[in-house]
Design a binder for these strands. Structure first.
Lengths: 134, 134
DNA sequence: GGTGGAATGATAACCATTATCATTACCACC
DNA sequence: GGTGGTAATGATAATGGTTATCATTCCACC
């Protein structure tokens, strides 16, 4: 239902968003991008940030993950991976397992499903948090 | 941050919610439960539905999946499974693959992660929708 | 240098969910 | 069977992330 017009121009604002994400290893949500760009002296309106993120994602220039409440964005120039989220501190780690991917494809075929994407998130306690557990 | 008090009483309203979900194979969201119970002549306030669903889920009497925007609930008396969502018609199919589960555990251990849960959703086109594709 | 479509940004609206709070239901115990 | 305390209800307001609106600005191209 949501209409996402294809990106026609890589404007200054979108370039700023793209640079921010490309030069970091973090997972950003819209609000964080908005605040960080303000801090860096090139403020971009929150609505523009949302549209920019969606457009850049659509264009394949960045990639996204839906994590619980908010959607987060990260660099696209890495190999495919999934995410582990620490339920204690909220940190996000990445992992990839080609066998899991292959099995997903198999499971889909079994059901006559034409797979277009997937989302796998593991929840748990990260190494740091299990270490300092009281 | 969200405080979920343990369920102390299985009230009439919660019993109604539980019965509705237990006697169906569907995945319900709060609004649907609210509407269906109204239609059946035993209306339950929307806030109560939300609280009831959360409490029943906490108590393990039903189970839940976070699908994109809304959270959905289903019977708990089945073996563990994950979900495939048709991006065309929205239908939800279930599948399970014990090897995928095992590999998830392996991936977590590799990172020193203490796994507490996971969520795997496959997106694609279901058999029916690929069949009638124009 | 004018014109039309794309993008911006401030702000309002949306929508699923949660909080508030007065009222009601239920339980334990006298 | 009354009574006090706690849980649950339900109408409604509030929250919070995201999207829509719309006047304005930007940019490519004739």
């Amino acid at each position: 239902m949501v209409i996402i017009p294809p990106m026609q121009r890589l404007t200054t604002q979108r370039q700023a968003i793209l640079d921010l994400i490309n030069t970091s290893n973090r997972h950003w949500d819209a609000e964080e991008v908005n605040r960080e760009l303000s801090d860096r002296g090139q403020p971009v309106g929150i609505a523009t940030v949302y549209r920019g993120l969606t457009a850049l994602d659509e264009a394949g220039l960045i990639s996204s993950v839906q994590l619980a409440d908010r959607k987060r964005y990260e660099r696209a120039d890495k190999s495919h991976h999934d995410h582990m989220v620490c339920v204690e501190c909220g940190s996000i780690e990445e992992f990839s397992h080609h066998k899991i991917e292959a099995l997903q494809e198999a499971a889909a075929q079994e059901k006559g499903f034409e797979l277009t994407g997937h989302q796998l998130v593991l929840f748990g306690r990260c190494a740091a948090c299990t270490g300092v557990k009281k």
